[in-house]
């Protein structure tokens, strides 16, 4: 029993990170129909910039804030320099642009930060908390709380603020949104900033547990993408649930089947979802007008 609980707890912790990455995917996907493969690099940058600022002497909260803001700025730059000039290009081109951008960011990170593995201290110490015979790190609680807080924040933003509704309107119908006076380019900018900032936050929260290096982004992108697919692409609630489900599945696979194949869980999920449930758990059935 305590063994099962332990696997569940570690699954929920990684699941929270996947949920954050999946939320980032969802925001950009909704605003622009672009699947942003560079999402994982935002996670890497969040961790790396915090490490850099912290070792330079900044207090940890300030370093974390700087990392989130700097990554958000980078997300905006990516939108302005790479996505916006290619507006109207076929989906293949946009996918390749985001993959190209992710390789570029990884290459740049390797030059700036080097190839070593980095970390910084956990926010509230390293003494594990005991729950019913299982243990959880205080940092895991930070990660879980972080992803739930981001989700609630996004929900309030999208339902209670005018700006949030403008974003939703744009994702529904770009042209119609433009016609009623919504500044759609600004909505795109905002979406990239939020998405990158959330990715960076995931990196800040998880780095004390998993550590970070210049090449961790790809794995986060693929897992977060799987989570978003599982929940139903474009649905924030789906992203949250998909992330946690995927994490738990991975935790159980690692515990009971094989830790070597724990990463396989995500990709078997992708295939199973596509075979049996192409709209994901929370996706709507799409209909097309010809």
């Amino acid at each position: 029993m305590s063994e099962l609980l332990q696997f569940l707890l570690s699954g929920v912790t990684v699941g929270a990170v996947y949920a954050l990455v999946a939320l980032g995917f969802t925001i950009i996907y909704n605003a622009s129909d672009v699947v942003n493969f560079a999402q994982g690099e935002f996670v890497m940058l969040g961790g790396m910039i915090t490490v850099m600022a912290y070792t330079a002497g900044a207090p940890l909260p300030l370093a974390a804030l700087a990392a989130v803001l700097a990554t958000a700025a980078l997300g905006v730059a990516m939108n302005k320099l790479a996505i916006e000039p290619a507006r109207g290009a076929p989906v293949v081109s946009l996918v390749i642009i985001t993959i190209g951008a992710s390789i570029f960011i990884r290459g740049a990170a390797q030059l700036v930060f080097g190839k070593q593995i980095h970390t910084f201290p956990a926010f509230s110490g390293d003494d594990p908390i005991r729950i019913l015979g299982a243990t959880i790190l205080p940092q895991s609680l930070w990660v879980i709380a972080g992803s739930v807080a981001v989700f609630v924040g996004l929900w309030l933003f999208f339902t209670r603020t005018l700006l949030g509704r403008a974003v939703l309107a744009t994702s529904n119908n770009r042209l119609a949104a433009q016609l009623v006076g919504i500044n759609t380019p600004f909505v795109m900018t905002l979406s990239f900033a939020m998405s990158a900032g959330i990715g960076a936050l995931a990196g800040v929260l998880v780095t004390p547990i998993t550590m970070t290096s210049y090449d961790v982004g790809l794995a986060f992108a693929l897992k977060g993408f799987a989570a978003a697919m599982l929940g139903g692409m474009g649905n924030p609630k789906g992203a949250l649930v998909g992330g946690f489900l995927l994490g738990v599945l991975e935790g159980l696979t690692a515990g009971y089947i094989s830790s070597q194949y724990k990463d396989a869980a995500a990709f078997i999920v992708i295939l199973a979802v596509l075979f049996f449930l192409p709209q994901g758990l929370f996706g709507r059935k799409s209909t097309d007008r010809v």
Binding site: A82, P85, A86, A89, S93, L94, I96, I97, I99, G100, A101, S102, I103, F104, I105, R106, G107, A108, Q110, L111
Partner: peptide
Amino acid sequence: AEYEQLVLGLVMVLVMIFLR
């Protein structure tokens, strides 16, 4: 060799934007 990824990524993005 250090710049390989940087250049590869840049080529991908630039070609997609300017030579669709």
